[in-house]
Amino acid sequence: MTDKDDRRSFYRELGRYGALGIEMSISVVIGMAIGWYLDRWLGTAPWLMVVWIGFGFAAGVRSLYRAAIQAQREADKEEKKDGKPGGD
């Protein structure tokens, strides 16, 4: 792994994991908004909002999980590349 590759992957990961926090919080807000409008439409306040806040939280966790899977896959790839005989 050269210095340039190192810096490039640093920037990439900065973008990817920096996005996680805001995405998790916005998922909850979007879930809440969907629930609120559905409640107003169907007249079931406040139950759908509660359910959709749950969905929003799950969506946030899902994007965290997705990033974790991606990170794991990349770490595996890195390991395979480094462990290869003749590799650097």
């Binding site: 995405e23 916005i26 979007i30 879930g31 959709w52 969506a59 994007s63």
Partner: peptide, 18 residues
Amino acid sequence: LPIEIISHLARPMSLSLR
């Protein structure tokens, strides 16, 4: 389905808000 829809909607929101 709702979870995926929310997480896809969160993306443009987070992009623009950031």
